[in-house]
């Protein structure tokens, strides 16, 4: 009897573990294989935090939030130089590139492209906020891992997912904050 209970407990544990790791069931993953190897792999390799957001439809219950935020915060790394503001010209090339950071697709404020309105407007970002250490740090960290501030948001986790290096993120921070940057000196496309 005890053996059965232990086995059941182990099974339940394994199941709970499997469920926590992935959003899709084994059966669903099998059907997704029909979509091809490259496609299916993306779903097989779903990360636990992605699964959590999927399960909760991007609205995490309050009791999960402290641990989630702590884990996301732990992923943030900084440039070796310690400088959070890099080269604004390089940052502009990253900000305005569809294949690279693609920021303008959702955020308004770029002097090069008309921005979308899925995310908040960043128009004249640095002019309104200044360049204090706190502002630099906040801007850097949100770009590095937006989920450490806005759990399950649509914004890419540029640093945490390896889409941009810490140095590239510092360049984007400069593009947004530097008073000399085109972002703060030139009018946003679409502004009157």
């Amino acid at each position: 009897m005890r053996k059965v209970l232990v086995a059941l407990f182990a099974l339940a544990l394994a199941l709970a573990f499997a469920l926590a790791q992935r959003y899709l069931t084994e059966e669903e993953l099998k059907r997704i294989q029909a979509g091809g190897k490259a496609y299916a792999e993306v779903f097989v390799n779903q990360r636990p935090d992605q699964a959590l957001c999927s399960i909760h439809r991007n609205r995490l219950p309050a009791d999960l939030l402290p641990k989630f935020l702590e884990e996301q915060r732990a992923l943030i790394k900084y440039p070796a130089s310690g400088k959070l503001m890099g080269d604004w010209r390089k940052g502009g090339a990253i900000f305005n590139n569809l294949q690279k950071a693609n920021c303008f697709s959702c955020h308004y404020g770029s002097p090069e492209h008309l921005g979308g309105d899925v995310g908040p407007s960043l128009e004249k970002y640095g002019r309104n906020r200044g360049q204090s250490e706190a502002v630099q740090r906040y801007t850097y960290e949100v770009i590095y891992n937006a989920w450490a501030f806005f759990p399950c948001t649509v914004m890419y986790r540029f640093g945490a997912q390896g889409l941009l290096t810490p140095e590239e993120i510092a360049d984007v921070v400069a593009y947004l904050l530097d008073p000399e940057s085109d972002f703060n000196t030139k009018p946003a496309v679409g502004s009157r």
Partner: peptide, 29 residues
């Protein structure tokens, strides 16, 4: 389920744009 699954290096799902931001614009679209 595919609609709601967040996956890939960009953490995307269909729903995170097409449900949560329906009515807004990505660039001009």
């Amino acid at each position: 389920e595919l609609w709601y699954t967040r996956a890939g290096a960009r953490d995307m799902s269909c729903a995170v744009c097409h449900d949560q931001h329906a009515g807004q614009r990505v660039r001009l679209s």
